[in-house]
C-alpha cells in the first residue's frame, strides 16, 4: 500500500480537530447557483436559436469548470494529472463535434437520396 503521510497528521489523532475551512466551498456553491439562474433567465427571456444555444453551452462549460476544478480538486493536482484528464476530454469534444456535423451531413444525403 502506498503511504499516505501527507494526509495523517499525528497531532490530529489526539482529539484536537482544526476548525473547518469552508468559505471557498460555499463560494463555489453560490457561483453554480448564479450560473444556473442565468441559464433559466435565458431559457425564458430569449428567443430559441443558435445564439441562445451557444450561451447555454458556454455557461455549462463554466459550471463544469468550477465543479471539476474546485469540487473535484483538479486545479490543485499536479500539472501532469491535469493534462492527463484534459487532453483526452478535449479530443473527445472534438470527436463529438466531428461526429455530429459529419453525421448530420451524411444522414441528410442518405435521407434525400431515398426521398
Amino acid at each position: 500500500m502506498a503511504s499516505h503521510s501527507h494526509h495523517a497528521h499525528d497531532e490530529q489523532l489526539n482529539g484536537e480537530i482544526p476548525k473547518p475551512q469552508t468559505k471557498g466551498i460555499w463560494r463555489v456553491f453560490v457561483i453554480l447557483c448564479v450560473l444556473t439562474a442565468i441559464e433559466f433567465a435565458f431559457a425564458f427571456f430569449m428567443e430559441p436559436g443558435t445564439a441562445r444555444n451557444v450561451i447555454f453551452i458556454v455557461l455549462t462549460i463554466f459550471k463544469a469548470f468550477f465543479i471539476v476544478a474546485e469540487f473535484m480538486h483538479l486545479k490543485h493536482e499536479t500539472k501532469s494529472l491535469i493534462w492527463s484528464v484534459l487532453i483526452p476530454t478535449a479530443l473527445l469534444v472534438w470527436l463529438i463535434i466531428a461526429l455530429v456535423t459529419e453525421g448530420s451531413y451524411y444522414g441528410e444525403s442518405v435521407f434525400s437520396y431515398f426521398k
Binding site: A2, E77, S80, L81
Partner: peptide
C-alpha cells in the same frame, strides 16, 4: 508501490 505518480 510506494511511489505515487502525479502525487496522487
Amino acid at each position: 508501490g510506494g511511489n505515487e505518480p502525479m502525487k496522487a
